[in-house]
């Protein structure tokens, strides 16, 4: 699980050309979009979501249907993404 998490983080940093952070800086359960009350979170926006969706499809072979409330949930955090990817990965 945690290895997948790290992979996802690497893909995310590369795809979104994020600067100044390493996979270690991204918390597994912090929100990817915007910030929560404690001020944690990556603060990504909807364009990033599209970009990230494509990168995940390219790297893990898992695609998302059109962006809807359901999809949004999968993008909530690294943990959520990892869960979705493991559940949908065709081995």
């Amino acid at each position: 699980m945690s290895e997948l998490n790290t992979q996802i983080k690497e893909v995310l940093i590369k795809a979104l050309e994020l600067e100044d952070i390493t996979p270690a800086d991204i918390e597994d359960d912090a929100p990817l979009f915007g910030q929560n009350k404690e001020g944690r979170g990556l603060g990504l926006d909807s364009i990033d979501a599209l970009e990230l969706g494509i990168a995940i499809k390219d790297n893990f072979g898992v695609s998302f249907s059109t962006v809807n409330e359901e999809t949004r949930k999968h993008f909530a955090s690294i943990d959520a993404l990892a869960a979705y990817i493991s559940a949908n990965k065709k081995d």
Binding site: E19, D20, I21, D25, G34, Q35, G39, G43, L44
Partner: peptide
Amino acid sequence: EEKKDINAFFKQHLSGFLENTVQPKKW
């Protein structure tokens, strides 16, 4: 402090006024 923490300070300040998309992504 590390650069990412300085970034975080400014991002935190801006998030009260600007939506994510128009906040600076690189610093």
